[in-house]
Design a protein around this nucleic acid. Structure first.
Length: 262
DNA sequence: ATGGTTGGGGTCCAA
C-alpha cells in the first residue's frame, strides 16, 4: 500500500501533474491539500476515469481545501472542524481498518506573535485543537495515519538555516512545542526521520521566490506523514519526490510517500 | 532591511 501527501496549490491548475504522479509512482491513496476548489468544481471525474474510483473532498472557494483520492474503497469519510469552518481536514478508513487523517494546518501569517497576528493565534489554537481531538478520540494502539501540510518544520535540519529561521513562522519554538505536544498525544512516529537521520537536511517545500530552487536550496520540511506504533513494523519505504519541484508550473511543495506492507 | 513569486477571483488576499 503506497500512500502519498501532496500540497498541490490548486487541483484544477495541476490536475495533469497529479494524474502523472498517481500513475508514475504507483500510488494507492493520495492526500491533497490546498485544492482551492469548492466541492462542485472538484475534478472528481478525471480521477475516476484514471482508475481512482474513490474520492473524498472537502473544499471551499479560493482557499484551503483537502481531498483523498484512492483506488481502494474508502469508508467512514469524515470532516472535523478545528477552531473554525475552514476546509482543512478530512479522514477515512482504509480496507484493512487503518484510519487516515489528512490536514492542512494554517500557515499562520508573517508575524510570529499571537497578540498582534490573528493568523498565528489561529495556527497555534488549531494544533492545540488537533492534540485534544486525538487525545480524546483515539489511542496509540489503533492503526492510524496522519498526513498533510503541517506548515511547521520541527527539527534543526528540517530548515535550511535553523538560526535564520528561529523567528520565521514555521520554525519558531512555540510552533515546534505545539507540534511536539501533538506528536506525543498518541505517541505518533515521524516516518521521515525513521528513514533519514535528524542530522541530515530534509525538505518538502521550496519558496516560489527563489530564482533557482535547487541552487539556493532554501527549503523546509513542512509536509509530514506520521503513523501509530502498530503500523511501524509494516513500514517498508519512504520517499520525497524532490524532482517534482521542477518542470512546468510546479507546486511549491513536493509529494511525500510511504509504503506499508499489507 | 527589503523584495522576491504564485493562485484564485475579481482589481486584493493568502501563501
Amino acid at each position: 500500500m503506497r500512500i502519498a501527501t501532496y500540497n498541490i496549490n490548486s487541483v484544477r491548475l495541476r490536475i495533469e501533474r497529479v494524474l502523472d504522479l498517481l500513475k508514475n509512482s504507483n500510488i494507492d491513496v493520495l492526500c491533497l491539500q490546498e485544492t482551492k476548489a469548492e466541492n462542485s468544481k472538484f475534478p472528481e471525474s478525471r480521477f475516476i476515469d484514471n482508475g481512482y474510483e474513490y474520492c473524498a473532498f472537502n473544499g471551499e472557494k479560493s482557499y484551503n481545501g483537502v481531498a483523498i483520492i484512492s483506488r481502494v474503497p474508502l469508508t467512514n469519510i469524515n470532516i472535523q472542524e478545528f477552531v473554525n469552518t475552514h476546509a482543512r481536514h478530512i479522514s477515512t478508513d482504509l480496507p484493512d481498518g487503518t484510519s487516515i487523517h489528512n490536514f492542512y494546518i494554517p500557515a499562520g501569517g508573517d508575524e510570529p506573535d499571537r497578540d498582534i497576528n490573528p493568523k498565528f493565534a489561529h495556527k497555534l489554537d488549531y494544533v492545540d485543537s488537533m492534540t485534544e481531538y486525538f487525545k480524546s478520540n483515539h489511542d496509540e494502539n489503533s492503526k492510524l495515519i496522519i498526513v498533510g501540510d503541517f506548515n511547521i518544520a520541527p527539527y534543526e535540519h528540517d530548515v535550511w538555516s535553523h538560526k535564520q529561521l528561529l523567528k520565521v513562522v514555521s520554525h519558531t519554538p512555540i510552533e515546534v512545542e505545539k507540534l511536539n505536544s501533538l506528536k506525543e498525544s498518541i505517541n505518533w512516529i515521524d516516518v521521515a526521520r525513521e528513514y533519514i537521520p535528524e542530522s541530515e537536511k530534509l525538505y518538502s517545500w521550496w519558496s516560489y521566490r527563489n530564482k533557482d530552487w535547487r541552487k539556493s536550496n532554501r527549503g523546509r520540511r513542512l509536509d509530514h506523514i506520521w503513523v501509530t506504533n502498530p503500523l511501524k513494523p509494516k513500514l517498508s519505504k519512504f520517499e520525497i519526490l524532490s524532482d517534482l519541484r521542477n518542470g512546468e508550473k510546479p507546486s511549491d511543495h513536493v509529494p511525500v510517500i510511504i509504503e506499508l506492507q499489507e
